[in-house]
Design a binder for these strands. Sequence first.
DNA 1: TTGATTGTTCGGCAATCCACGTACAGTCGA
DNA 2: TCGACTGTACGTGGATTGCCGAACAATCAA
Lengths: 130, 130
Amino acid sequence: MSRYFGTMSRHPERDQIRIESVLSALGSPVRLAAVRVLDAGGEHNCTSVLELLGITAKSTMTHHWRVLRESGVIWQHPSGRENLLSLRRDDLDARYPGLLDAVLAGAAEDAALENASASAPAGPRGRSRT
Amino acid sequence: MSRYFGTMSRHPERDQIRIESVLSALGSPVRLAAVRVLDAGGEHNCTSVLELLGITAKSTMTHHWRVLRESGVIWQHPSGRENLLSLRRDDLDARYPGLLDAVLAGAAEDAALENASASAPAGPRGRSRT
DNA sequence: TTGATTGTTCGGCAATCCACGTACAGTCGA
DNA sequence: TCGACTGTACGTGGATTGCCGAACAATCAA
């Protein structure tokens, strides 16, 4: 009743979740990064994630939150003047066992790979460090 | 050398594959369906999949093949006058263990769910038949 | 060589997506 | 009550995407 979040609170039920929506929601660098933040920490609000990601404008993030929310990847519920975010891990695991873990592990590996090649400018083939 | 597939044969190396590209490639109904066909059968050419999917124009499929190819999801190599398609299962499994299986299983479940609700027009909750 | 087949390339068009600034609506602290 | 703060709503511009028809290139069969 309170708050003006008119369109905001549209979360799909567990059975309404569709894998193409989930995949295309996660198939964006910004959103994937946001999901990784949510996976790593406990509860975040919008700005805390926004600051961790470094860049974007608030209204841009609102857009991404909506995509993640409407695809069933995150919960977003108001608390006080903030909007708390969390992964819908249980729902995703129930519908698509192993998917989220595989994605997060893969994203972590990609990030590591990216860092490695960034710190070894000349040799992308680098066997550097261990 | 042969064939005129100028831009065609751009496949990323295994290490070049990025998970966001894979996810956004799979996050489209048409492409996900195409991948499911490739997973089910052996080797297909473009039109065979196109016909199985029922609908689209050839040039549209060419577009989707390119997205799948450039994201590292499929191999596409010319043989005679056809263009044979196959899943890059080994590469994907190597880079993102469990991902492809989770996606395919999820897609299958989604499809089953969709069929169930389609064949039970009145009652989506339907325990109908068996 | 001629014709059929396969699938690409090249535009064009509509729809969607992304990022942004601005305005505004609740909530909280002083 | 008056700001400060959080985050949404809305509109816009630019880029990307999806789908298509038409033309063409390579191969194969006759």
